[in-house]
Design a protein around this nucleic acid. Sequence first.
DNA 1: TCCAGTTATCGTATGGGCTACGGAAACTCT
DNA 2: AGAGTTTCCGTAGCCCATACGATAACTGGA
Lengths: 265, 265
Amino acid sequence: MTEFSGTTDPDRILPLLWRHRTARRATTGRPPRLSVDDVVAAGIAIADGEGLAAASMAGVAARLGVATMTLYTYVPSRNELVELMVDDVLGGRRLPGPGEERPGPWRDQIQLYADRTIAMYRDHPWLSQVSRVRPPLGPGMLRESEYVLSTLGAVPVERRNTAAVTITMFVTAAARQEGENAQLRRASGQSNDAWWGQRGRLWEEWFDVDRYPAMTELWNAGGFDRGPDQQAADAFAHGLRLILDGIERGPQSSETTGLRSSPMP
Amino acid sequence: MTEFSGTTDPDRILPLLWRHRTARRATTGRPPRLSVDDVVAAGIAIADGEGLAAASMAGVAARLGVATMTLYTYVPSRNELVELMVDDVLGGRRLPGPGEERPGPWRDQIQLYADRTIAMYRDHPWLSQVSRVRPPLGPGMLRESEYVLSTLGAVPVERRNTAAVTITMFVTAAARQEGENAQLRRASGQSNDAWWGQRGRLWEEWFDVDRYPAMTELWNAGGFDRGPDQQAADAFAHGLRLILDGIERGPQSSETTGLRSSPMP
DNA sequence: TCCAGTTATCGTATGGGCTACGGAAACTCT
DNA sequence: AGAGTTTCCGTAGCCCATACGATAACTGGA
């Protein structure tokens, strides 16, 4: 299930996200053994390998060879640690910034964003366990916003943000699913298809054909022959194309027909 | 963050989901004080009011006036309890089954699905904390699949499942966001807009205009004047319309142009 | 040299979570 | 009444985050 970073104090987390030295760099006092980056990197490494739950304060401290409570010198709480991990990984996509080389066509630029985002969730499946509303407002997160918006320069400015949010929402949803899949695959040692296969009894024992005619029809037509992973991949490619088509096309003259429903062809 | 129901034994959870009496109803032995439905209902009530974390085994037991360990007579573990809660709530949308009355136009039928799903996540925000890949294969879940598929009878059967999964993916993503919002609003006692407002210092202190030209341009054009909640609502309405338009239109003759990227109008 | 000031380190304790285990309680049937 | 069966639940073990306070390690100045 998903962890919710509880309330985090902006005055504490923002300087951390941007790695702002706490005013004057301390020249006095006992010198630190670690840095915030060390802690964040250790957290990511553990979460990547053993899951987010294993990246407990005790777990991270053990990997760094310090006592648990030592971490609280670097990070106010585990919530903040996770936020820092997330922003770090978001930035790890290295989406091209202004002036950096990128594909020419805007659709290819979006595809780059989608590909890297899905790869990110596949490499760091624990991301799916962290909510992304009220996200960490760090450099990694802002880089994403900037990149997606920068691909949409041809969209009229009054529609641009809606387009960006729509794309982000859809891509993120697909990527999170991919991450959840990777997560479950690893945690259960069982592929998605194996999981469904194990539940084959369902159809024989509890599935009532009369109660589910549409599913039955599709089943008989072979509509479920492609496994759930391929179905999800198909749906993502299809949906993204429809959204990009619609954005490219712009508002139709028959815009109001969206309210009246017409019979399908 | 999101909880992941770990591995659950299908031979245990499937009969529970479908409320299958364990073979002959026991006529001997000490009579039970509760039923599975009691436990599930108590879990949902607590999660609705105080969040999923509060629906711990101890919490649920306390509400029912029994000892913690008593619950394990009814439910194999907390994972299974959460799965049962989810399927129950999924079914609570009461999406029309075969033969039951429903709106005529297929787009209105989809809209009904979307509206009820978003309402469900708003009423039960903890749903957002439970992964929905490898979902509980109970009556609530199957009712959703059946309904969505049944609205798409006019789509050729070989494209029907892709369309259904695309719609479900998009609607679910939006609904989950809504749920996460409700969750955070309640947990932090702070609206989304207040949260962003509290982080206004970000823009003054760390936001570098040269590094984020596209965001800056949009900001100056008033593109962020609508708050994040409205932006999300706009994006959902817009995205769903584009997807339904695309499904209704079917594959275009110029289908391959989707591969070549054209400059935007 | 030594001490005050400052910062980092970390041991202990509290309070929460899930659940394995095994014994006690409550019922039916013989 | 006793055997069999099922439910109930107290205890204990092991995990988690983190508040608190003591101690260690360093700098700069007397």
